[in-house]
């Protein structure tokens, strides 16, 4: 362990305002991409279902 306490860890030796935004935005971006891809898939499947129902009605 490189830090003695949780507050020392959060303080990052005085560099908290540089380290945490860099880490935060990067990890948020990764999570964001995964969530986005999942929503994209759901939306596409919903569209397929909608078209299917429409075509079933007109047939």
């Amino acid at each position: 362990m490189a830090f003695d306490s949780l507050s020392a860890f959060l303080d990052m030796g005085g560099y908290a305002k540089y380290v945490w935004p860099a880490w935060g935005l990067t990890l948020c971006a990764l999570i964001g991409f995964a969530v986005w891809a999942r929503m994209e898939r759901r939306q596409l499947i919903r569209q397929l279902e909608r078209r299917r129902r429409r075509e079933a009605r007109s047939a």
Partner: peptide
């Protein structure tokens, strides 16, 4: 990698803990 690089890897002798940005950069 995140836990190791943020909490366990040693601080840099010149840059201190600011160098931990390297692990996402």
């Amino acid at each position: 990698g995140s836990v190791w690089s943020l909490a366990y890897s040693p601080p840099d002798y010149q840059m201190g803990n600011s160098y931990r940005i390297i692990y996402v950069h």
